[in-house]
Design a protein around this nucleic acid. Structure first.
Lengths: 138, 138
DNA sequence: TCCTTATTGAAAATCATTTTCAATAAGTAT
DNA sequence: ATACTTATTGAAAATGATTTTCAATAAGGA
């Protein structure tokens, strides 16, 4: 999804379009790896010098709320964000460079049914994330 | 695995067995849901009043290093720990009470092969976690 | 162009975690 | 049992990430 569509989403939800938000949106939208708030800050500040870190936090919060970005969980920490996948997609992360790819087509129905039967749980959701090496790093 | 086996593991790896460690180990080992360091502190202090929070952090660090516990990732945060599963197992968490169950038998080979082919990534590892409602909470 | 009010950045506050340090106690040697 | 070495401890301070506060600014409708 292009950055403009993100800004439109923000506007449609009653948020104002500011230079700060534009800088953050453009940064996160065009980066294909997960970024921490400080990384976003450093990168976005090149577009808009006066940007404050607090505003980065606040903007990321809104983008997550609108499901335009999602938090990425990794062994080293869980404070990074990446442009969200569309629909039911999962993340595949390169262990070396962090490059992210989304994939779909995970049919876990058979698995979850078996587990529901065994454990007595009603299964509502799943998190699946793959780690590997991207074509470049391999 | 009983608490004694955890203590033995600690001893075998050159760590001393102290009242503080016993209290932490017994707390985490017998709890079937993920606990944050502060929760462990509060619970373990009932067994050993003089326990300090810092020691809880240090003990959890060692237990994780020995793979006796593992960090649990959840939407609300990723600072909680739970007794580790044995071998290649995944977690199933109750959304209501946090009750955890482990399961195995996730054969993702077919899926990962297909994704490797499509994305060009070499896939090394996966994280799978299920969320649902346990028999009690359903 | 004006006006209302959401948004801003800076500073301070908060919260989780880590480091520092002198006192204590495990576990081995005696 | 006793002494001794040194890992471990808890408290306090330091750090690092995130959130709150607040007065100044600037979006965007009137």
């Amino acid at each position: 999804m292009p950055a403009d569509a993100w800004l439109e989403q923000l506007r449609d939800n009653g948020y104002r379009l500011t230079k700060a938000r534009r800088a953050v949106v453009e940064t996160v939208e065009k980066t294909t790896r997960a970024l921490t708030p400080v990384e976003v800050f450093d990168m976005a500040r090149k577009k808009y010098r006066a940007l404050g870190l607090v505003t980065v936090y606040r903007t990321l919060e809104k983008l997550e709320e609108l499901r335009l970005i999602q938090r990425v969980h990794q062994p080293q920490g869980c404070q990074a964000f990446i442009a969200a996948g569309v629909g039911h997609q999962h993340l595949l992360l390169c262990r070396n460079c962090g490059q992210a790819a989304f994939f779909d087509g995970d049919d876990l129905e058979t698995l979850t049914n078996a587990i529901a039967r065994k454990t007595g749980y009603q299964i509502l959701d799943h998190w699946l994330q793959l780690f590997g090496l991207c074509a470049n790093c391999r």
